[in-house]
């Protein structure tokens, strides 16, 4: 990437000699991976719902699969944004919906029930990762009720606020003559 971006740099502009430590934590990388996974899965669900329902023996539920695909894509986009924590919690909720939908197809007369069991196992594994990433990427903003430093003495006017106000009033009372 630097090789590419250096193409647009002017000769003489500083170039990286040695990189410093990154702010990215492993959980940020995990969130990113889950975000892209979510978009990929969502695209498959949206574009090929019949293949999925046929694999699971749940024919007739294509609209639901499509809707889940849209949900996956939106959660994925959110997981890749600066609001990734909200995206990851949306994924955790989505995992619950996925599991519920799969369980509804786990009936004794379903010839593909072993596929459903496998899918449930995968949803469980991904849900654990989603939950872990959501926990670890919680915003580090201080809670509203946290005690904060206040700055009641920082007026910025060395001669005092009243002096600043009265100085402005004097100028207003004696305006500068308009330029001719």
């Amino acid at each position: 990437m630097f090789h590419f971006s250096n193409i647009v740099r002017t000769k003489g502009d500083p170039k990286i000699l040695e990189g410093g430590p990154s702010l990215k934590r492993p959980e940020d990388q995990l969130a990113r991976a889950l975000g892209w996974f979510s978009i990929g899965l969502g695209a498959v669900e949206f574009l090929a719902p019949r293949r999925i329902t046929a694999t699971l023996g749940m024919e007739g539920h294509e609209t639901l699969v499509r809707a889940f695909g849209v949900r996956e894509i939106l959660a994925g986009i959110m997981s890749l944004s600066v609001d990734k924590n909200a995206g990851l919690w949306a994924r955790v909720g989505g995992d619950g919906l996925d599991a519920a939908a799969l369980l509804s197809g786990l009936t004794s007369d379903n010839p593909k029930k072993s596929n459903i069991a496998l899918a449930l196992l995968m949803v469980g594994g991904i849900a654990m990762l989603d939950y872990r990433a959501a926990q670890d990427t919680r915003p580090r903003r201080p809670p509203r009720e946290a005690r904060r430093k206040l700055y009641p003495n920082r007026s910025g006017f060395p001669k005092g606020l009243e002096n600043a106000r009265s100085g402005a009033k004097q100028i207003a009372a004696h305006p500068m003559p308009e330029r001719s």
Partner: peptide
């Protein structure tokens, strides 16, 4: 020299970079 360098979304690093030169 040291400089704060943009590497991507939410990723700024303190890198060692070449010193700037007079270009014009």
């Amino acid at each position: 020299m040291k400089a704060l360098v943009w590497h991507g979304k939410e990723d700024i690093r303190c890198d060692s970079v070449t010193d700037p030169e007079i270009q014009d």
